[in-house]
Nucleic acid binder design. Structure first.
Lengths: 122, 122
DNA sequence: TTGCCATACATTGAACCACGAGGTATGATG
DNA sequence: CATCATACCTCGTGGTTCAATGTATGGCAA
């Protein structure tokens, strides 16, 4: 038989994708990102700080982000910016995501004459 | 502080969704489902048997599927059919999935004038 | 007739990611 | 002066998915 070959962790890294995309529009700090995601998705997606901070650190460590400290109103913030490598990574993740959702969408829409689940909800 | 409230396991259950959707078009057996998913998605999504069988058992246990044994060409197969409860479940999952991808899509498309990541790939 | 591969079922251990809870510290508000 | 919102961080847990492995049978070729 064909030697297994399934695609590993096929739908992870969405927080990473969202974070990179938000930062693409301008520098932000962690706490701000948490709220931005909640706000822009009408709370459909709400990642906690326990998700965001580790991702931020990992991305910086991987060279996809760079940070600078800044103190605003006595508050110390760490602003993150996307590097060139980060933009590439964003492109990759976005492409993967598009392929994945496309495939699922296609399956949902299917060819069945009966119920159809691929249409918009509202 | 605002009592946390993130949305738990926000993108799981995709295999379950696909399996239910496939079975909606007619009864199938496990091994067949594994290949159907790979075929219909052009191998973009490929779940292993180790994913499919447990899901099948769980769904049957939950009353969303019912099964019947059938021997074809000396091969013993277990065919699964969606129950009324399964159809409901499928509807729920599909709605969740639509909401989720919609939210992500919106964020990807964003308002940024620069790069846009929400468009189709090809 | 003896391997070998595809079919067809199933289980298991590890890996991974996201989650929630908790922890520190400061400024504003009452 | 106490409480809340800001702002950072880490750790343990839990749920899913993964690859690997196991069993058994049928078809096909050497």
């Amino acid at each position: 038989m064909a030697p297994r070959e399934t695609n590993p962790n096929f739908m992870n890294g969405v927080p990473e994708l969202l974070i990179l995309r938000l930062l693409e529009d301008g520098e932000m700090y962690g706490y701000e990102i948490v709220q931005a995601i909640r706000d822009r998705t009408d709370a459909v997606i709400a990642v906690g700080e326990g998700v965001v901070y580790p991702v931020l650190h990992a991305l910086e460590h991987a060279g996809a982000l760079k940070s600078r400290r800044k103190t605003v109103a006595g508050r110390s913030r760490i602003y993150y910016t996307v590097t060139k490598a980060g933009t590439r990574r964003l492109g990759d993740l976005a492409a993967q995501w598009t392929a994945l959702t496309g495939a699922i969408q296609k399956t949902l829409a299917g060819s069945g004459a009966g119920g159809r689940y691929g249409e918009a909800v509202s």
